[in-house]
Nucleic acid binder design. Structure first.
Lengths: 220, 220
DNA sequence: TGAATAATTGTGCAAGCGTATAATTTCAAA
DNA sequence: TTTGAAATTATACGCTTGCACAATTATTCA
């Protein structure tokens, strides 16, 4: 008769906020933005809906925190490939390109999250800024690799051409990432990486690129 | 006391379906998927919510019809350049590529719509089918143009290579379309078209492509 | 050990959602 | 002009949503 409440543990604020953000991302990845209801998020976090309002002033607040965390995480992941590489410039470029169109970067979950948020980028200014910054950061990194690879190959390019090459290479990578994630069954394993490497080489006027890494990068 | 009903006109079935689809697209472009409620769509179409269920078996049915119309519309818009073109195969390819990364195909509204839909593609099977079909339709069209252009240049390619080239060219176009639509202020006018033409030429190993059309295509 | 504090739960509410369905109005054919 | 069928409106229902708030529990500190 005593409607016994469920027992619970008090977590630190940082931990709980993190858990709720992770749960929100899970929900969005699984069921899209419309599937990320307050109740669903709380459920996934093993918590009661009311608690969300204790840590976030509104659901919108939680969602925007989740987006921020997603973008930060993706940028860090793309940077990780390069941090401890001692390959040649050409090799580094090849590794970077191959990694960008191979799991875990190509991943239905990542795609679902990106798709769930991209719409808000067009409406919300804060989101737009985050998006713009992380896009340019990625492209700048790519441009640096291209610059090094061209120099190594004895075919340096001027600034204007370099910028255009970076935009084009970035576009190929984005396009392949998109198509590979949205229609995975349409491409054989490794096919996207081969196409990406061949395309970047053709765009830069370089001989075929071969990645130095033996296989796909480890997740996380 | 006589709760006088609002007067109305009977439209043909095709017309009403079109109106409702257009209204749905407007709603999604403006307020995102969550803004496209049955009531909002009916309101924008100057109609009563109940009517939607008279022409579509469910809201989901209407939404997927709208997505289909958006995608085929974009492909047709790119292909319109070709309908009465008597240009060479190389010229047709150039026109097609340039049109795909130039307004009105590159357009924040189109991007907003696409972004609103893409996440459902990963979840809903019907949406997935629509996406897959329209993606392949666009790529097939592109592949046909590439095939003709390569033949004309005396460098025919076998089927496997042709497929890969089409995937790569399609990826560049998609990527440029995405970036140009999401961050329009990042690119000078005509810059995307130049990059696209240069990239496709480099990918195919052809000399620079030059469009035959004098300028951007007229809207609609 | 006991009291104070803040984290967490549980309940309830008003609004909006998609949908079913009955009541009306329009329009074309007779 | 009348009639009949189909298009359209109007109303209502059950469900879900985000949010507010009071009740309760775990934890800390004296």
């Amino acid at each position: 008769m005593t409607g016994q409440r469920r027992s619970f543990r008090r977590e630190g604020e940082a931990q709980r906020r993190d858990d709720l953000i992770a749960a929100a991302l899970d929900c969005i990845a699984t069921g899209g933005p419309s599937g990320a209801t307050v109740r669903a998020i709380a459920d996934r976090a093993g918590v009661t809906p009311g608690l969300i309002r204790h840590y976030f002033t509104s659901k919108e607040d939680l969602i925007s925190a989740a987006y921020s965390r997603l973008m930060t995480g993706m940028t860090e992941q793309s940077a990780r490939v390069l941090t401890d590489s001692r390959a040649s410039a050409l090799g580094q470029l090849a590794d970077f390109v191959a990694a960008a169109v191979t799991p875990p970067v190509v991943d239905p979950r990542a795609m679902a999250l990106w798709a769930g948020f991209i719409h808000t980028v067009l409406i919300d200014d804060r989101m737009r800024t985050v998006h713009s910054e992380s896009y340019l950061a990625f492209r700048d990194r790519l441009q640096g690799l291209i610059c090094g690879a061209l120099a190594e190959a004895g075919r340096p390019a001027d600034a204007v051409r370099l910028r255009r090459l970076a935009i084009a290479c970035n576009a190929v990578i984005d396009g392949l990432w998109l198509e590979g994630s949205a229609l995975p069954e349409e491409f054989a394993e490794g096919e996207l990486a081969e196409i990406a490497l061949g395309s970047v080489a053709a765009l830069l006027g370089l001989p075929p690129l071969t990645p130095t890494a033996p296989g796909p990068v480890a997740r996380n």
